[in-house]
């Protein structure tokens, strides 16, 4: 309530933005990749909450299923498989950190400065139901049929590629020390 009074912003937005940014920072600064993945999943949850607030229920659900459910679990799976943990996490130089902060900060400042007064240009025309499964589905299978089908090609290609890289050649060149660990 207090924040709503100060900023004039809805409490939901504030809370979830806070969670989003905090978790995102945790993802990029944490040394242990496993924790990073978990934090990233939290980030995705809070972004889904944003979607719900923005009336995009369909995407909120898809986001949870695809990102949090599938992609992140894949990440987790690979991390566990490769047995990567804090000890073998590579370190980078301190100066490089500084440069990165500088670069990202500059981008942020430029974006913020350039978008300072841009919101007036967006006309507000919130239609209630565009984010619902029914209406989105309708558009997806009429107007956006071509890209929808083409994403099938994409998946096929990705699948073939992943299998190609993952499988081991039969008449193989000797791979370096491959006895202990057995990925895929």
């Amino acid at each position: 309530m207090l924040s709503a009074l100060i900023f004039g912003l809805p409490i939901g937005f504030l809370v979830f933005s806070f969670i989003t940014i905090l978790c995102a920072l945790y993802v990029v600064t944490n040394d242990n990749p496993v924790f990073s993945v978990l934090a990233l999943i939290l980030t995705f949850f809070s972004i889904s909450a944003h979607y719900v607030m923005l009336n995009a229920q369909f995407l909120a659900v898809v986001n949870l299923i695809v990102y949090a459910g599938a992609i992140m679990v894949l990440f987790l799976f690979v991390l566990m498989l490769l047995n990567l943990s804090k000890e073998n996490e590579p370190k980078v130089k301190y100066g490089w950190h500084f440069a990165a902060v500088f670069a990202a900060g500059m981008l942020l400042i430029i974006l913020a400065a350039s978008l300072h007064k841009s919101s007036e240009q967006i006309m507000r025309n919130p239609a209630q139901d565009i984010g619902m499964v029914k209406s989105l589905g309708k558009v997806l299978f009429t107007d956006y049929l071509v890209p929808f089908e083409l994403s099938g090609i994409l998946f096929l290609a990705a699948m073939v590629g992943a299998v190609l890289l993952g499988k081991r050649d039969k008449n193989n060149e000797t791979e370096a020390g491959d006895s202990s660990n057995n990925p895929s």
Partner: peptide, 22 residues
């Protein structure tokens, strides 16, 4: 924008390929 920049910062600083992907 803030989220994007956090991601960018991560890309620039981290060297673990999996974390980069994240």
């Amino acid at each position: 924008s803030v989220l994007f920049c956090i991601g960018l910062f991560g890309v620039l600083t981290r060297r673990n390929a999996i974390v980069l992907l994240m």
